[in-house]
Amino acid sequence: MIELYISAFITFFVVIDPPGCAPIYAGLTSGGGRAHVRAMATRAVLVATAILLVFALFGRNILGALGIGLDAFRIAGGILLFVIAMDMVFERRTARREERAEKIKETPEIEDVSIFPMAMPMIAGPGSIASAMLLTAQHPSWAETAVVLAAMLTILALTLLALLAAGPIMRVLGAKIEAVITRLLGVLLSALAAQFVIDGVKASFAG
């Protein structure tokens, strides 16, 4: 169970990337009141948590209703996570996040960024949704699912702390250190994604 928790923790940490969300959120909310910024951060994480819990708990039923096999989803999810990992390694993911943030900052009528883009797609994005569904599907017992959900909720709590402390985190990390961390996490995520694909292919041929 400890190994499962650590594995799920690392997966969600890499995909959700709390340190990477912090500077984006700081840029989006610069000049806002402290209470309003805290409220938006809390709302963003709560909405993202609800989305991820729905897919983690009912994702398998959703796949079944669509006629999609679990092995096919493992392979597709692994490929998706691998693409995200490549974007992290080559810094394309960060660039897109910053570009999206700049577009929203240029639109004065959009003040509340808690739902878009913070809750979706920055926190509860394709990668985190796929990870939640894959991990709970691979570990279907209630005890294992509870461990996966505990790891996910831990990362979401860390994400909330990162958003609330976005300003100080930016000053401590700096752009260069953040870029190094992002690349290292991308390499780790690529290995996890490859394992998802391997497991899916093995299960398909075994079946």
Rank of each mutant, 00 (worst) to 15 (best):
V147I: 12
A41G: 09
P117W: 09
W142I: 13
A35E: 07
A175D: 10
I16N: 14
G67R: 05
I115G: 00
A56C: 08
E144D: 15
G27T: 08
T94R: 03
E144M: 03
T29N: 15
A56M: 10
L156Y: 00
E109R: 15
E102I: 04
A119M: 01
C21E: 14
T136K: 02
L53R: 14
F55W: 07
L81Y: 00
G59Q: 07
G78R: 03
F82P: 00
A130V: 12
G33H: 04
A137F: 05
L135N: 04
E106N: 03
C21T: 12
I104Q: 02
A206G: 09
G125C: 04
T136V: 04
I84Y: 01
K103W: 01
A35I: 10
M120R: 05
V14Q: 07
A194L: 08
G125F: 03
T107G: 10
L153C: 13
M40D: 01
A72P: 03
A72M: 02
A41S: 00
I16S: 15
A50S: 11
I10A: 07
L53N: 11
L80W: 04
V172G: 07
L70I: 03
P168A: 06
V54G: 03
V89A: 01
G167E: 06
S30V: 11
G167D: 00
R74I: 09
A179P: 05
I198F: 04
R92H: 05
E106Y: 01
F9A: 02
R97Q: 05
L53G: 06
A65I: 10
V37S: 05
S204T: 00
L160Q: 14
E102K: 00
E109W: 06
P126M: 02
F82M: 11
F73P: 05
G167P: 06
M1L: 02
L156M: 13
Y5F: 04
G207R: 15
T29V: 12
Y25A: 15
G32L: 11
L160K: 03
P108K: 14
P117K: 08
G33N: 04
R38G: 00
E106Q: 09
K103I: 02
R43I: 04
L63A: 08
A76I: 08
A8V: 09
G127S: 08
V197Y: 03
P23D: 09
A146M: 01
A206E: 13
A206V: 10
A72K: 01
T159I: 06
E144Q: 06
T136F: 08
L189R: 04
I24F: 00
G125S: 03
G67L: 04
S7D: 06
G69F: 01
D17S: 06
T136D: 15
F205Y: 10
L149H: 06
G127N: 06
A137D: 15
A39P: 02
I68Y: 07
L57R: 15
V15R: 14
P126R: 08
L156V: 08
A130P: 09
R171M: 10
L160G: 11
A50F: 10
M133D: 13
T94G: 00
Q195D: 12
L184S: 08
V187K: 03
